[in-house]
Amino acid sequence: MEAIVHDPAGAVIGLDFDGTLSPIVPDPAQAVIHPKAPGVLAELGARVGAVAIVTGRPPATALALGPGLADVPGLVVLGHYGFERWEDGRVSAPPPPPGVPNAEAELPLLLESLGVQGVRIEDKGRAVAVHTRRSPDPEGALAALREPLAKLADKHGLVIEPGRMVLELRPPGMDKGHALGLFLTEREARSVMFVGDDLGDLAAFDAVRASGLPGVTVCSGSTEVTALAERADLVVDGPDGVVRLLEELVSAITRS
């Protein structure tokens, strides 16, 4: 953290969205960013080299669920684990993979055949997610779906990304660690912090350490995921704790 405070112009601050900047909710479409997050990110963005949101959501969705994010100075949104990029009001991305819509078309019949109740399919454009949080038995539904969805993903050339009561089918070849590592190189970063809450953020933690830069990994803590907390340099209490940490970082940079 000291390297960020003493040389903020060389710092990259990376953050996940769901569970980090936004509380986890039963319906992902109803998620909303922490009310203080856009303001503190704007203050941070004016002081550091770059602020990057690295998320499994499409950039447009993250921005829609985070009013005010588009005004954060220098913000970059690396969506779909880095396959899509929003910067300066524009989205760039390669063509969408055909395996995703093909797998999504098979999902309703597969779920019906398994008799799993209360699950929700989320079309994410370049990925498709199956959420079990609304099921009468979320953990049991997740366990029952893991192998069948892995087979479906493999059939269509996709991979499974596990998360908090969700299994996501997405294209291989990119993850949060790869996306963050490329961004650090691009920006010639001299220090880095990454904040996340879920298993998909472990790759970004690894990228922080592999970069060789002064860095800090932060877990937005929850009772649902412990693996991240075990690997983090610092654990805070959910999105409220993330916002407080960012506020403290802004204050420390301002005083230095």
Rank of each mutant, 00 (worst) to 15 (best):
E2G: 03
V5R: 08
V12I: 14
G14M: 06
T20K: 05
Q30G: 04
K36H: 14
P38T: 09
G39Y: 04
L44K: 02
V48G: 01
T55G: 02
P58C: 02
L63I: 13
G68F: 14
D71H: 12
V91T: 15
S92P: 00
S92M: 10
P95F: 05
P95Y: 06
P97N: 07
V100P: 05
A105T: 04
L107W: 07
L114Q: 05
V116L: 10
V116Q: 02
E122I: 03
D123N: 15
R126H: 06
R126Q: 06
T132V: 06
R134D: 11
P136H: 12
P138M: 13
L142K: 10
L145G: 08
R146P: 09
L152K: 11
P162R: 11
G163W: 00
V166W: 01
L167D: 01
E168R: 03
K176S: 08
L182R: 14
R187T: 10
R187M: 15
E188P: 00
E188K: 15
R190L: 07
L199V: 14
D201C: 04
F205Y: 12
A207E: 01
V216L: 15
T217A: 10
T217M: 10
S220P: 05
E224F: 13
A227R: 12
A232I: 10
L234R: 03
L234G: 00
V242K: 02
E248H: 13
E248I: 06
I253D: 06
